[in-house]
């Protein structure tokens, strides 16, 4: 359980990092918190020939830039827990962070690392999808803006090209009052999820005007429940009919089966978690109405 031989390069600034990544191409990987990459290297499931350490780069801002919340690629997960902008506009994001691993992982892991790694059950890819985030991928050739729905291509596979790295993620700030919830089920606290569901609702008074539902555990990438999102719009906070919507969503998916959960179990679970997240998001709206 020792990594294969690799070269280590400490990038001094963004231009240096991008130049190194351009030079190494497929053989290079940026190293941020290392919470997923390093274990994968120890198991020799990942064997980059060169690591470009980007920890010294100033990609650490969480700030409002016009209509978007800009999150630098090196923002560590624990920071969301005390960030007022996250709490005010992205409540499902805030809840999701509580489910990310353990304190050590939350202290070291970064958003750029998490979404580039693209574990099928990871929380932040699901949150990017839920809030229609835009991922900024930078290279010596300039920046590409990639919509979250186009970014996650498969388990551990993203739209990033050789020489590119994530430098920031932008979350559009919801125009209306926003509530949301994220619930995950794993065997133990901090485990990889068997399934998780996130919901974000926007409100006009007591009526839902915008809705997004995301789930992990159905397929090898997080998916949006576009079929049922439309059903939520126009509903009142005291009658979201969440159970029926959850069942309806569950009926559209055919989850994987493995030793941690049968397909039937995951399917039911996603329906149940959908119901619970919708009800919780409605409860938040009621409490703040």
């Amino acid at each position: 359980m020792r990594p294969a031989s690799f070269g280590y390069h400490k990038a001094t600034d963004l231009a240096h990092a991008l130049a190194l990544l351009a030079e190494f191409g497929d053989d290079g990987r940026p190293l941020a918190g290392g919470q997923s990459l390093v274990p994968m290297m120890n198991l020799r499931l990942a064997r980059p020939a060169h690591l470009v350490d980007i920890n010294a780069l100033p990609l650490t801002a969480i700030e409002r830039r016009g209509d978007v919340l800009h999150v630098g690629a090196l923002v560590r997960h624990h920071r969301y827990l005390s960030d007022p902008l996250i709490a005010a506009h992205f409540p499902a994001f805030l809840e999701a962070v509580h489910w990310i691993g353990h304190p050590t992982i939350r202290n070291h892991g970064s958003i750029g690392g998490s979404i580039s790694h693209a574990d099928p059950t990871a929380e932040l890819p699901a949150i990017c999808l839920l809030y229609d985030a835009t991922i900024i991928a930078s290279s010596t050739g300039g920046d590409r803006r990639i919509a979250a729905r186009d970014f996650f291509l498969g388990a551990y596979v993203t739209a990033l090209q050789p020489g590119e790295m994530v430098t920031a993620v932008e979350f559009p700030i919801p125009p209306a009052k926003s509530t949301g919830a994220f619930i995950e089920l794993g065997e133990r606290r901090g485990d990889f999820a068997i399934a998780s569901v996130g919901v974000a609702l926007q409100w006009s008074g007591r009526q839902i005007t915008g809705a997004a539902v995301v789930c992990c555990g159905a397929r090898l990438v997080p998916i949006r429940a576009s079929e049922v999102e439309n059903l939520l719009i126009g509903r009142q906070l005291d009658a979201p009919d969440a159970a029926a919507i959850g069942r309806r969503f569950a009926n559209t998916i055919e989850p994987v089966s493995d030793h941690s959960g049968s397909s039937a179990y995951r399917k039911h679970l996603i329906g149940e978690l959908t119901r619970r997240t919708i009800e919780r998001a409605c409860q938040q709206a009621l409490e703040t109405a």
Partner: peptide
């Protein structure tokens, strides 16, 4: 008796789907 096992053991308590 993990979550998957418990869920399958409690089928009789769920309404038929």
């Amino acid at each position: 008796l993990n979550a998957n096992a418990i869920w399958h053991l409690s089928a009789h308590l769920r309404p038929a789907e």
